[in-house]
Design a protein around this nucleic acid. Sequence first.
DNA 1: TTAATATATAATGATTTGCTTATATATGCA
DNA 2: TGCATATATAAGCAAATCATTATATATTAA
Lengths: 114, 114
Amino acid sequence: MLKRELEMEKAAMILKLLGDKTRLTMMKLLENHDCCVCEFVEIFQASQPSISQHLRKLRDVGIVKEERKGQWIFYSINKNSEYFSFVQQVLTQLPDQEEKLKELEAKGTRITCC
Amino acid sequence: MLKRELEMEKAAMILKLLGDKTRLTMMKLLENHDCCVCEFVEIFQASQPSISQHLRKLRDVGIVKEERKGQWIFYSINKNSEYFSFVQQVLTQLPDQEEKLKELEAKGTRITCC
DNA sequence: TTAATATATAATGATTTGCTTATATATGCA
DNA sequence: TGCATATATAAGCAAATCATTATATATTAA
C-alpha cells in the first residue's frame, strides 16, 4: 500500500521531468547516442547554463549519467536507474530526433573525438 | 519536420499534465471506471475546487470527457483523443489503484446510481 | 604559467502552477 | 417555489519552475 502510493509519486515526478520539451528531446536523443553539453547547447540554441540545469535535473533523479571525456562531459541514459524501463517505454512513443544530430554533423559541430 | 517538432511539443505537454500525482492517479482510476467529481474529492481528500480544476486541465486537452448524469458529472477517458494511445501506454505501467475505489465502496460513498 | 574552452553553480526575476476562499450555476426534491 | 447538493469558475497568494547574468571550476594547449 505504501509501495503503491510511493510508485505513483515517483511516476508523477518522472513524468513531470519529462514534461518539458527540452528535457524530453534530450532523453530521446540520448536513447540512441551519448551527447555532450555543448552539442545540446547547439541543438537547442539555448544558453549553456540553461542546458546544464536541465541535465542536472535528469541526473539528480538518476535517469542519466555523466562521464567526462577530456574536456567534454558526455551524458547517457542510465540503464541501471529504477526508472529506466518506465522512461524507455515513454520514449519509444516519440518521433525520432536523428535529424537534429544530422544537422550538427552537417555543421561540423558534432563531437566525435572520443 | 514541423510535425516532428509539433509532436514533441504535444508529448511534453501531455507528460507535464500527467506529471502531477493527483491527475496521474485520476487517469489511472479512469482507465477502468468512470468517476464523478465527488468521488475524486473523497478519494484524494482534496477540496472540490481543486479537483474540479485538475479535471478541467485534463478536459481542456481532451484526454478525458464529461457526461452529466442527473446531479452528477461523470468523467471518463476520451478514447477518441489524438493522445489516447500515448496516455494509455503510460498508464499501463502504473500500479493499479483499485484499492482506492474499494475504500469508497466500504465507506458507502461510491456513486453507483447510474 | 597563462589563456581558451567546457561545464557547473549561484543569484535573481518573471512566469506558471496549484491551492484556498468566495461565488455562480445547474439539478433534484420537498 | 425554495432549499440542498454537485459542480464550475474567479480571484488571490505562496511555492515551484525556467531562463538569464555572473562567477567558479576543470581541462587542454600554448
